[in-house]
Structures are given as C-alpha cells and as structure tokens.
Measured scan of single mutants.
Amino acid sequence: MDSLVVLVLCLSCLLLLSLWRQSSGRGKLPPGPTPLPVIGNILQIGIKDISKSLTNLSKVYGPVFTLYFGLKPIVVLHGYEAVKEALIDLGEEFSGRGIFPLAERANRGFGIVFSNGKKWKEIRRFSLMTLRNFGMGKRSIEDRVQEEARCLVEELRKTKASPCDPTFILGCAPCNVICSIIFHKRFDYKDQQFLNLMEKLNENIKILSSPWIQICNNFSPIIDYFPGTHNKLLKNVAFMKSYILEKVKEHQESMDMNNPQDFIDCFLMKMEKEKHNQPSEFTIESLENTAVDLFGAGTETTSTTLRYALLLLLKHPEVTAKVQEEIERVIGRNRSPCMQDRSHMPYTDAVVHEVQRYIDLLPTSLPHAVTCDIKFRNYLIPKGTTILISLTSVLHDNKEFPNPEMFDPHHFLDEGGNFKKSKYFMPFSAGKRICVGEALAGMELFLFLTSILQNFNLKSLVDPKNLDTTPVVNGFASVPPFYQLCFIPV
C-alpha cells in the first residue's frame, strides 16, 4: 500500500510540474494548442506526416506557434517570411542545433551535424575549407563525379535492359564520391566492405524516417530501456565508426604531411598542428563522427533524390523527352556531361530543381535551437528552445509555385524558357546551418541524371499514369515507394 501511495504522489508531482512548466512558459512563447500533461501535443500531431499537421496548425495559430513534445516546448516556423527572418536575418541567433537524443547517444555531441557552439563552428569551418581545397564546386571533385558517372552508366548497362530496382546502384554512385573525398578511394560496386557500408546507410535513412524515431526523440528514456529499431540505428553508426577508425589508422601509418590526399589526411594534419593548443576540438573521436556525418549527409540524401527523380521522369515521359532533346543538342553522344553545360541547359536545370522542390526530401529539416534569449515577432523565446522549420511550407508555397503539388519544371523557367532562380528554393535548409555539401549534391544530381539520360531511355513496367509517387515514409525524410524500371541503351 505504501508503495502505491508513493507512486501516486510521484505521478501527481510530475503532472503538477508539467502543468507549471507549460503555464509559466506560455506567456512568453508564441500561441499554440493546449498541451496535455506529460505528453504535450503529441496526440494532435500525425507522426506519419508531421508536415501536414504543421500546415493545419498554422492555419489556426499563424506562421509562428508553439507545440509541446512531452514536456519540451518547440517553436514552429511556417512559411517563407518566418523562416527567412529566423535563419537568414537572425542567422546567428537561430544557428543552434536542437535536442536530438538519439544523435546524442550516437555521437556524444561530436561531428558537424549535431554539434553546437565553438566545437560546431570550428569543425564546420575546417570541413568547408577542406572540401573547397579539394575542389568542391571546382574541377578536381567534378572529375571524381564524372568518373563515377561513367562507372554508374557501365553498371546500368550490365542490367541488359531487364527490369531492376535502382535503389542499390543509385546509392553506390554518391557513396563512392564521398569515399573518394574521405578515403581517396572508390570501391567496386561488388566489394563486400562497400556493400556493408551501403547497407547500413540505407537502413539508417529508413529507420530515421519512421514514426518510432519521432517518439524516441521526444521521450528519450525509451532509447535506453525499450527495444526497437533505434538500437539497430545505433549499432549501424557504431559499425561505421569502427570502419572509419580502421581507415584512420591506415592513414596514420602512411600519411605524407607534405601531400595530403583526402579529408582524413587533412584532419590528422590539423590534429598535429593543434596538439599544443589544448583542449582542441580536433580529436580522433571528432574525426570519426565528422566522417560519419559526411557519409550520412552525402550519400543517402543524394541517392534518395536520384531514385525519386527517375520515378518522376517515368511518370512524366514528356519531361524526359525534353531533357534528352536538350542533352542531344548541347552535349551530344561523344563526350561526358560537365558542369559548364548546365548554363546552356535551362530546361534540365529546371527539372533538377523541380525534383528537389517537389519531393521535399527533408520536410522539417533537422531541429534548430536559439543560442540566446531572443525577441522574435513580439515573442520571447528562451535560450536553448528547439525550433522546428517547415521546409515544406517554403518549397510548396502556392504563391511562389502555382499548383505546388504538381510536378512542373516551369516553376523554374521564365516566359522565355530561361532558368529562373527562386529564393524559396531551400531543399538544403538556409542560413548558417545550410548543408555543407550543397554544391557537391547539386553537381552530382546534374551529372548523374544527364549521364543516365544521355545513355538510356527509361521504360516503366506499368502505365506511367498508374505510377504512385507518394512517399512511403514522410517523417525525417521523404522516401519514394518501391518501383522497377528498364534502362534501355540509346
């Protein structure tokens, strides 16, 4: 009986604490739906499609509103004006990374994606500088992407125009580009180590996009005490870190300090320079996690976009025909596509942009946080508050993009057929937390897609009208449904 009384008292205290925290903070924060004790607004949000729920709530509470995930307040920004004001106009104040408990377990605050403060700034600055020195957006990395595009075309030829699921092959190409940047090595598509790495990356994007992960991140005790797919994700990350550590040891034994070959060499050189400046942010643990982040951000996002792009091109054969006509006119058949071609191919450029806009790969991006107490639109948001960005509300804005739910390359073309930029184009987020590999991803999408369409016609196994382009999961990332196609050599 005594234990029951204690339990009831504990629960009562928890409920009172929950109510007090919510009521004391709500006077400062933007308005929002009334949260339930302990669980907050979790029942009012469709976990399978958070973005749709945010759109519905914005119609009631406006472009800036507050939700509670458990006891934790989260300020939501919906629509271009609110997102721009926060991420661009007040970029420094909104540059923090929001709480992501599962990532905390995986990387302990290291790396480039989930770190904060001085650690994040130094690692991000170093990573950007190193990638630029190796030619991100310049010639040397373009050579690597072109080489991988040629290998991709050869792998597709091996399908002999038979029906195939493109998931694996389209994942190999961007993964190999990242391998060449980090390890100075590309792998054969049949290499077992490479296959294991690909498998872990593919599993992780599916797990991260599941409703279960949303629950884990908002009720963090689940991570330590409950079984579930989150444990598989943590094991996959541990596998990748151990693999990278092996490569780091190989580099330490063979590195030429006067001739760095890749990202690992550059990081080890930085560690050597910083060894007298303790404590340094440049450690082996930081290198492991930064490399894992580059793999995660640079492989599955690009391969998922490529997979979605081919599905949309199957669905819209008239678009595919126009792209192939432009390829034939500008590039021809006797040389590989290059980035200089893009400025002469406005329709193809528009298609690449429209694919990214339409699929809305990361509907709410990753959570941000404010780095200080900030007054925002007459609300006071306390330091450390998590900020949720609705990228969907920007990419699918119906004023900027008429009929935003329709796939239409003319969203990025003017009346004369010239490519038209849009400030609403934010597939990689915006501001200080914009994806480090934005330029690389854009290069890969253009070169891989043009190389495929230069060499193959795409054949659907069903009537294009019957192809479903609805994402199968739409949590962290929008993942396309399973499909097969035939690559018919031109």
Rank of each mutant, 00 (worst) to 15 (best):
S3I: 14
V8T: 10
L11I: 13
S12T: 13
L14T: 14
T34I: 10
P37H: 03
L43G: 14
Q44W: 08
Q44A: 10
G46F: 10
I47A: 13
I50Q: 11
S53K: 15
N56C: 12
N56L: 10
S58C: 08
P63F: 03
L67N: 00
F69N: 06
G70M: 03
K72Y: 08
K72L: 03
I74G: 02
V76L: 03
G79V: 01
Y80R: 13
E85F: 06
L87D: 03
I88G: 15
L90Y: 14
E93G: 12
G96P: 10
R97Q: 01
A103F: 15
R108Q: 15
F110T: 10
G111H: 01
V113F: 10
K118V: 09
W120N: 12
K121Q: 13
F126P: 02
L131V: 08
F134G: 13
F134L: 14
G135M: 09
M136N: 11
M136I: 12
K138Q: 14
R139L: 12
S140K: 06
S140M: 10
D143S: 14
A149F: 01
C151T: 06
C151N: 11
L152K: 01
V153R: 00
L156V: 03
K158M: 08
K160P: 00
P166E: 02
C175T: 12
I182L: 15
F183C: 05
K185M: 04
K185D: 06
Y189I: 01
Y189Q: 01
D191W: 00
D191P: 01
D191L: 01
L195Q: 11
M198S: 03
E199I: 08
E203S: 06
E203L: 03
I207R: 05
L208N: 14
L208G: 15
S220F: 14
P221T: 11
Y225R: 08
Y225K: 10
P227L: 10
P227R: 08
H230V: 09
K232S: 06
L234G: 07
L234N: 09
V237R: 09
M240T: 03
E246G: 08
Q252Y: 10
N259V: 08
N259P: 14
D265L: 03
C266G: 08
K270P: 04
K273R: 13
I284Q: 07
E285M: 05
L287Y: 02
E288F: 08
A291R: 01
D293M: 13
L294G: 01
F295N: 00
A297R: 00
G298V: 00
E300V: 15
T301R: 01
T302K: 00
T305G: 03
R307Y: 00
L312C: 04
T320H: 12
A321L: 11
Q324F: 03
Q324C: 05
E326F: 02
R329C: 12
V330A: 10
R333D: 08
N334I: 12
S336W: 12
P337N: 01
M339A: 05
D341M: 08
D341E: 03
H344G: 12
T348D: 01
V351L: 09
E354K: 00
E354P: 02
Y358T: 05
I359N: 06
I359S: 12
P363R: 04
T364N: 12
T364D: 05
L366C: 05
L366R: 00
L366Y: 03
C372A: 14
I374L: 15
K375T: 10
F376I: 11
Y379E: 03
L380D: 11
K383F: 04
G384N: 09
T385M: 05
T385L: 03
T386S: 10
L395Q: 11
L395G: 07
H396T: 15
K399T: 12
F401Q: 03
F401V: 04
F401C: 04
P402I: 12
P402W: 06
P404T: 07
F407V: 01
F407M: 01
H410T: 14
L413A: 03
D414K: 05
K421D: 08
M426D: 05
P427W: 02
K432P: 08
C435T: 00
E438M: 11
M443G: 02
L445D: 03
F446C: 00
F448L: 02
F448E: 02
L449Y: 00
I452V: 03
Q454N: 03
Q454I: 02
N455S: 13
S460V: 03
S460M: 03
V462D: 10
D463L: 06
K465E: 15
T470P: 03
P471S: 06
G475D: 06
G475W: 09
P480R: 02
F482I: 12
F482E: 15
Y483M: 02
C486M: 12
I488F: 05
P489F: 00
V490T: 13
V490N: 12
